[in-house]
Amino acid sequence: MLEFRFHGRGGQGSVTSAELLAVTAISDNKFAQAFPSFGPERRGAPVQAFARISDTPIRNRSKVYRPNVVLVLDYSLVSMVNVAAGLAEDGLLVVSTSNSEEQVRRETKWNGRLAMVDGIRIAMTHIKRPINNTVMLGALIKASGCVNMSQMEEAVKERFGKIAAVNLNALKEAFETVHICEGVKHG
């Protein structure tokens, strides 16, 4: 089973990211869950969402405490919360940032596998708004292969209707431009 945690801000689409991931996995005949960190929805406030993907039925409705993958949609959260908390040593951190690997590692204190994508720039280019949820999924799929890209494209088409095309372009650019850094060995 793979477990995912999403860090973002209310209104940015973290919950939608988790949903699209689960819907895509289920359409590929896997078992999956997605759910928000339940609470009053406040635009701009830090929010979390969770997902699980498994080959067998998932019998667990608790939050995710030991994720295999963490996605950070809003880089400003890195200074506020320990985004790598509980992340498995062989896990993956996917960050929306234009910063250098060195800076991201210093600020997240994460030495494992890291995927960096300039999410806001890609979102502004295609969607014209700083909503980078589909961008992050493109980066995630390239870095982890956890779901099938063509099935994700189908899920995005179904979900976004009229604005599907720009989201697909954002998804694809992120898939192509994500910068993947292998883990740093401890001295």
């Binding site: 289920i26 078992f31 409705r61």
Partner: peptide, 12 residues
């Protein structure tokens, strides 16, 4: 059915 943990869960 359980609020949130079922009602707001995406599942198969």
């Amino acid at each position: 059915f359980d609020g949130f943990v079922v009602s707001h869960m995406i599942e198969p």
